[in-house]
Design a protein around this nucleic acid. Sequence first.
DNA 1: GAGGAAATTTAAAGCGCTTTGGATGATTAC
DNA 2: GTAATCATCCAAAGCGCTTTAAATTTCCTC
Lengths: 342, 342
Amino acid sequence: MNLKQLSAKLQLSQTTVSRALNDYPEVNEATRVRVKRAASKFNYQPNIRATSLATGRAKAIGHIIPINSSEVFNPIFAEFIAGASQAYSKRGYELLLTTTESNTEESVYRTIASKGSVDGVIVHAPRFKDSRISLLQELNLPFVIHGRDYSNTGDYSWIDINNRQSFYQATKLLIDLGHTRISLINGVETLNFARRRLMGFTKAMTDAQLTLDQNILFNGDLTEANGYHAATKALAFKNPPTAFLVSSYMSALGVRRAIHNANLQMGVDVSVIIHDDELSYFHNTGDVPQFTATRSSVMEAGMLAAEMLLSIIDKPETAPLTKLLEARLTIGASTGPNRSDT
Amino acid sequence: MNLKQLSAKLQLSQTTVSRALNDYPEVNEATRVRVKRAASKFNYQPNIRATSLATGRAKAIGHIIPINSSEVFNPIFAEFIAGASQAYSKRGYELLLTTTESNTEESVYRTIASKGSVDGVIVHAPRFKDSRISLLQELNLPFVIHGRDYSNTGDYSWIDINNRQSFYQATKLLIDLGHTRISLINGVETLNFARRRLMGFTKAMTDAQLTLDQNILFNGDLTEANGYHAATKALAFKNPPTAFLVSSYMSALGVRRAIHNANLQMGVDVSVIIHDDELSYFHNTGDVPQFTATRSSVMEAGMLAAEMLLSIIDKPETAPLTKLLEARLTIGASTGPNRSDT
DNA sequence: GAGGAAATTTAAAGCGCTTTGGATGATTAC
DNA sequence: GTAATCATCCAAAGCGCTTTAAATTTCCTC
């Protein structure tokens, strides 16, 4: 059923039917009711391709997921996208998902822009100095970044958590518990969030006049395996850390495994604080959660990011919008006072 | 830059330019070269909405992800989709992602069909008796199911792993190792894969004349937390299981936690076999992998499913296509002979 | 070198929608 | 009673592409 057929059935022009359905004022209320009733009776849905061709708006948002050979598909992206998706459906937008390897990234953005398949994009996993920002500005495609560029605080919209502050607080808690040798198991170092977390960590350490030991600072994809390897290596030192600060629940599961393998008890012999993105499959819940954590729902961030982007598309003059989310520090079972002799 | 402008620049008709770009035969080779060169020079990309309006093909595939209040976003879906996405980009298709709660599911499918936003869909997480199959047949929308309907083996395309066989083999291995009390930690029972795995498990048990204890058969979302709770409960029985068969790596991490908490050693006191979807964030690798597992890459399944669907769209007469993937049983460190007295 | 076939190109219609620029009555104002 | 105003409705153009039908050019053949 298309517009033409529907309007034939109603003995009305396409114009009137279209206007009735889109709530334009210049149509009699009685006919509007009649039209809407017929539309739902015949389950008429305007063809979105035709609509978007006529209006020039794609009614779709693009998410371009970077995929390295190593980091394949981060569950954190997935959850963020699930959040965004809900915001889109509410507003009648579609979500276009593209994966890309880093070497083809720029051309993917260019293609998407010139094909006109989306009205805007969400940028995932911003790097230290991210060329995508200027690219998108050049392409004149509205966007919101999940995270920020580290070097460029300029004119663009973003949503981010306060990584620095969270990791500062978490580190300070560990220090207050008497820990002095703290291992940081962080994300890939080129990523912006990892830099900011390192900054918060470093600040707390130097504030307390503790020195950093590069040997127990780790960077890598936030997988279980990487967490395990890093923690195993750290614990094997003659002077092992008494505490770990871990950038994700997933790598923390690997850290937990390493601690158990070393015949140590988490929360007693070794303390652990994680950043908890509140992934639905790895949620750190319970009266006393397993891990002490800085928490922030990445799904909610996805929803907010989507809403921001849609509002920018509606009213470009309001851009840039920014939003900084604070993580909540929650005490769980994985932290305790330093019991080592040192 | 659009077709009109491009053809004006080339002093050719839109027809010829369009044909040149789409490799139609009725255009002089020299002009084709000239056109293509100009197209790439001006970075011309046909507007996909216009193209699809003209051709009647959306050049997009829909993935509709069911989201319960409990199960939010399964990393397995994510990885499957990442695989599919690669197949789509190769063929110039877009991937449309929609999330839906189960109560609005049917209307989401209907809407997608009548809006004409996609040429086909992939159906995720088929249930025991899944109404989506007949719905999609009625809507005349090509589809491929990741999994199968349990009750309906009829006329539709699917790709699935041999769940029954895998779990039969895994169970048999445990039995051969002397285990008689085996706990099954499975997915949500309405889902087809969980049924089939249960069947394989049951067959191996009854073949060996062992009785099933309903108290140590668990169903639920395949989260870490659920794995932990199930295993903790099972191990608390007066007569605890000596082995676990676990439907995912993620819940197995919870099982591992429960085993440690009970002061038992995995692979020595308690054996564990998992099904490993080879998720990139939770890959069970190494010379001797942590877990003994039945393995099958869900990302590869996504890629294959996508290719199947595209081929069905190209040549509808070849449907239905089906593909059964065998999982590989790999011995890891989590299994050993039964050492209990029973 | 004329006739016909083959190769190459083009004009124009059409995909399903929105939107501009009228039309057509009905209503109001004087 | 006529002009001006409103409320409704409609015909037709246009979004950017593909494709049909037709025109033009080139190439053979004898």
